[in-house]
């Protein structure tokens, strides 16, 4: 039986126009909404698979504001059994602080009788993209860690994890308890069913307050890259544009006339 903890983060949606807050300190998600990143959706799926295969539980945790309960409910709706909100002003948190806050949850639950044999995270957060929380968490817990993993399964006391290395697929075998950071692509995230959503609404979410004194992220300010003026020439719409395209290919000398 493997109890799995999966760490998720409420992040601004990926599509649509990104705006910044007036103080240039954070993204204003007014027009893009909030979501979970693809890496973390896959981590959630792997968490429920591992818990399901071993008869363990999958618990979702997030460090953030009370609004992040929405993302915890999303994880509950696709198969996590428990959810924990570590309520904190994450604007003041850097990756080391988030890792410390998650480590606290692992220890608290351990003391209460739930030992997470596997902690899953996304490879990198969709907003801050620090590439660090999984590794910093592993050091805080003194557990082995691998990042960039697309699939993993538990075999006895070992986590077998596969990722893409520079020369092809690579397999790691970590003794549990272990920390694994997941990249999108190995599994297809599930979409919540109506029943799943109803169930998720009824789960009581555990709320904790971290004792972490944040060191911060080092952020000075955010800026938007300069907008590029568009000079595109639209050759047409649909397959009817093929003739215009081949005219262009001829002009460029890509096909002979």
């Amino acid at each position: 039986m493997t109890d799995v903890l999966v760490c998720i983060k409420r992040v601004p949606g990926a599509s649509g126009e990104v705006l910044l807050s007036d103080d240039d300190q954070h993204v204003d998600a007014r027009h893009v909404g909030w979501t979970l990143s693809a890496h973390e959706e896959c981590a959630v799926e792997l968490a429920t698979q591992v818990a399901g295969a071993t008869g363990g539980t999958a618990t979702a945790v997030t460090v953030g504001s009370s609004d992040a309960v929405e993302q915890l409910r999303d994880a509950l709706a696709v198969g996590c059994g428990r959810a924990v909100l570590v309520e904190a002003d994450t604007e003041r948190f850097g990756p080391a602080d988030v890792a410390a806050a998650i480590a606290e949850v692992v220890r608290t639950h351990d003391a209460a009788g739930t030992t997470y044999g596997l902690v899953l995270l996304g490879n990198d957060a969709a907003d801050t993209g620090d590439f660090q929380v999984p590794v910093r968490l592993a050091y805080a817990l003194e557990r082995p860690v691998v990042t960039g993993i697309s699939t993993c399964e538990v075999d006895g006391e070992t986590v077998v994890a596969q990722g893409d290395g520079p020369d092809g697929p690579e397999v790691f075998e970590l003794p549990m308890p272990a920390v694994v950071a997941v990249m999108e692509g190995g599994v297809a995230p599930r979409y919540p069913s109506v029943i799943g959503r109803m169930k998720a609404k009824k789960v009581a979410i555990e709320t904790l307050t971290p004792s972490v004194e944040p060191v911060g992220s080092g952020r000075v300010r955010l800026t938007l890259p300069p907008e590029q003026p568009s000079a595109v020439q639209v050759l047409g719409h649909g397959p009817e544009a093929a003739a215009a395209v081949v005219d262009l290919l001829e002009d460029l000398g890509m096909v002979s006339r």
Partner: peptide
């Protein structure tokens, strides 16, 4: 918007149509 040229449409229709046009010519 950043390209020099564009065709607005479904690639599954546009791309084969371009290949056919090349072969036809």
């Amino acid at each position: 918007t950043r390209a020099h040229y564009a065709v607005i449409g479904d690639l599954h229709e546009v791309v084969p149509a371009i290949s056919e046009e090349i072969q036809r010519r």
